[in-house]
Simulated assay, not measured.
Amino acid sequence: MAFKFASSRFVQFIRRRAVSIAAASSLLSVLAAAGCGQLAHKERELTFRVEPGTASWYSGLPDGVVESNLVVQSDGKSQNLHTWWWPAEKKDAPAVLYLHGARWNLTGQLFRIQQLHDFGFSVLAVDYRGFGKSDGDLPSERTVYEDAQIAWQHLATLQPDAGKRFIYGHSLGGAVAIDLAAHLAGSADGSTGKAARTEQSMPPAAKGLIVESSFTSLADIARSLTYPWLPLQLLLSQKFDSVGKISRVGMPVLIVHGSSDRYVPSRFSEKLYEAAGGKKKLILVEGGTHNNSMRLGATEYRQAFEELFGLAPDPA
């Protein structure tokens, strides 16, 4: 009863003070280590913070967006992944897979998807299982990695030219994007890569990876918000160890972060940049927050597309 009461009060505190989910996960993990058998489930709830229904600011799909479902085979049953496909006006435009972060489904992501489309990209956006109109209940690190790989296979049919395919991830979606890119390079760690493989071989690697407002690992950001000495990497079941994977990504990497991000400090993106190998670029958007760096840094984004990827997308 004591743990139930403490965890209930803690969740209320998180909601009231808008504390990062990473901090919530870490503290609940410490409590759980003292005897709670529901650690994994509670940690996943707090990590993904799924908001059901439609975002309050969503005003409907723009003309040209096609909704569809992809089938995922998991644990002997079929489940649907809900997607949006928004082709660019230019027939053979570069295409990007959009991987969102925690809490909001696709209806809460449209403003960023619109910005990518305005850059000239065709955009495939996917709701992980447990989000929006996709099947499933509570997501996990394993299932979101699986979903990204299934969506990537679909993007390869929509844009067959590997030199015109990109991966974009925002916040927690940045960790999913890094895992996908490492997996495409054949170097995802066994705990995620092996579980997510399908009988069909994966398509060739993308032209580039774009990661915005993300972090090094869930344990790192949790430590930054609680106590640095806590052995959170041992307590958390959801690792999202981007810093351990990004050096194995076999494509150019663009990392973007707002200097005024109150939720995920920009130093985490600086550490990701340092760990990345090969061709790479870091953009720190002056005054950018967790959600508006693409809009404020639009000019820097366009310059990076040309400098890093040799690509200058035409406006839609």
Rank of each mutant, 00 (worst) to 15 (best):
S20C: 12
V65P: 05
L70H: 08
S8Y: 03
H257Y: 12
S122T: 10
L230T: 01
R9A: 11
V71N: 07
L116V: 09
P228R: 02
V176S: 14
F121K: 13
W104H: 14
D135S: 11
G136M: 11
I210Y: 06
C36K: 13
G174C: 11
Y227C: 03
D147Q: 06
G297L: 12
Q233I: 03
A125R: 13
F166E: 06
P160W: 08
I283V: 15
N69S: 10
A6M: 04
R112V: 15
A222N: 10
T83G: 02
Y263V: 08
R295Y: 10
L284P: 08
L296A: 12
K194C: 12
L158G: 00
E274I: 13
G208A: 12
A151R: 01
P139Y: 11
R17L: 10
D118H: 05
A222L: 10
L106G: 05
S25G: 14
E270D: 11
G163K: 09
A205G: 14
E286F: 06
R49I: 03
G193H: 04
L225C: 03
R16C: 07
G108I: 15
L225V: 02
K271L: 15
S140V: 01
A6I: 00
S7C: 04
L284W: 04
K133A: 12
L46T: 05
T47P: 00
A6N: 00
S134Y: 09
A23F: 12
